[in-house]
Computed example of a mutant assay.
Amino acid sequence: MSAAALREILPRIAFLRPLVEGARVLEIGGLARTGGRSAEWFAQVGARSVVSVDADPARVAAARASIASARIRIVEGRPADFPPASFDLVWVHDLESPHSFGELAERSTGHVVLSVDADQLGGEAGYRALVDDLARVFASVEVATQRPLVASVLSFGDRAGPLLADPSFEPPPAAQAYLFICGGRSCQVAGQVVVPLPVEAEADPEIAEALAESERERARLEEKLREARLTIESLRAELARNEGIADWDAEARRVEALERRLRELREREELALRRAQEAEARVRELERRAESWQSSRAELLAALRFERFRAERARRDAEGVFDAVAERDRLLEEWKSRALRAERRLDDLEGSGPKRET
């Protein structure tokens, strides 16, 4: 499980603890995001039972091998495999695969929670489309936002009080994710929740390698600089010991040679510093390129997921149109058959009329 999954999913479960406590929870997409750790978090905050469902046999087998809890079941299948009203809370972790909101609503006697990263929605248009789709199925649709926070907590240990946030120095960051809490009634969860998380570093491998190489280069240059300074100090000490030398011409030549050596050492020191600066510049460029690549990739993935979502909706609408056309054709055939029978009967009646007159 990645550190990003810990930072993103655990706070969402903690925020909606009142819905989780004592509930029968159906989790969808948890194995793909956390390998089953999210099911353990549901149980940890008080869920009565947790069923984590996934269609991938490999993910299911891996989760079963790593999780041992009487309150957690790892099931291979789909949400539609469970009977209606089997759970009190249905939790969907992402929009990777399309889900029928009607099917999800049927499985829950309480609420359906859809936790979606902001980059999955495809901007404001995708956000509004999802809210409209949910509103067609659920009487209540509430939206909570999740924002990352880097902060320091200061307090007097013996004087507990409310937790206050000072936004004077930094504006609030943009929403990182949205929680859509859907059901027949309000979830009754209010306020703001700050969830402390362990500090975990997760860097791009290319940037991490570049930083490591820069650190090794810096250590090598510092060692060379230390050696150069020791050499200079040794030369200065030797000059101080030889102040009474009689052959001043030879001493002058020796001093000149020492000065050349000193200049060479200073040039090497300057070269080492320039190389260190160049290494730092390369690292900054790699960081900038990595941020640009991550941003472009996130935008492309968000657009792709949204188009998949729209394609699935269009397919379902098309299936409804095809059913209506088929029903129309059936009715037309039935009316044609009735019309033919009526024409035959009319012909029979017209043929029998003259015989009665004669």
Score class of each variant (00 low, 15 high):
R128T: 06
L164R: 08
G110W: 02
R345N: 14
F15Q: 02
R185K: 12
R284C: 08
E334A: 09
E215F: 04
L331N: 03
T34A: 09
R147L: 00
F42A: 04
R236W: 09
P205H: 08
A105T: 02
S292R: 03
R313Y: 07
R159F: 01
G36L: 08
I28S: 07
E142D: 13
L286H: 10
S108Q: 05
R266W: 13
A139K: 10
A144G: 04
E223D: 08
G77I: 09
I13V: 15
F309N: 01
A303F: 11
R33M: 01
A177W: 05
A318I: 07
D347K: 13
R263W: 08
A252H: 10
A65L: 14
L258V: 07
L6T: 06
V137D: 06
L271S: 04
R297Q: 13
E76Q: 11
A55R: 08
R282W: 13
A303P: 05
R107H: 00
R297A: 06
A252N: 10
D81I: 04
L179R: 02
W293R: 11
L114W: 01
E280F: 12
M1G: 09
A70P: 05
A326R: 04
S108A: 07
A47M: 05
E142Y: 03
A23T: 03
P167D: 13
R253G: 15
A55S: 15
G46P: 00
S115T: 08
P57S: 11
L104Q: 07
L300F: 03
R261A: 13
L154I: 00
A174C: 07
S140N: 01
P83D: 01
R338W: 11
V75K: 00
L130T: 05
R315E: 12
D133H: 04
R356D: 11
S2R: 14
R147S: 14
P172I: 07
E96I: 08
A39W: 04
D247C: 15
A3E: 13
A14L: 09
E291Q: 07
E307Y: 11
F156M: 11
V193T: 15
F169Q: 05
D249M: 10
E223S: 12
L19C: 14
R289I: 12
L301N: 11
A240N: 14
V50G: 00
E200A: 09
A47K: 07
W335T: 09
F180N: 07
A208R: 14
G122D: 12
E222F: 12
L134M: 02
H99D: 02
E319M: 10
R33I: 03
G46W: 03
D348P: 13
D166R: 00
P196V: 06
R64N: 14
S115P: 00
R17F: 02
G29I: 03
R220A: 15
S86E: 01
P171A: 10
V153D: 14
S38V: 05
R17K: 12
E299W: 15
G22N: 03
A63R: 07
A139T: 14
R229N: 03
I72Y: 01
F180C: 10
L6Q: 08
P162F: 03
S100A: 15
L258N: 01
R313S: 12
A246M: 10
D347T: 04
R315L: 09
E327F: 02
G184C: 05
R328C: 04
D117C: 13
A151D: 02
F169T: 05
A61P: 11
V45N: 03
A272S: 08
E233T: 00
S115W: 02
V194L: 08
E106N: 10
S97N: 03
D88P: 06
A208M: 06
Y178T: 03
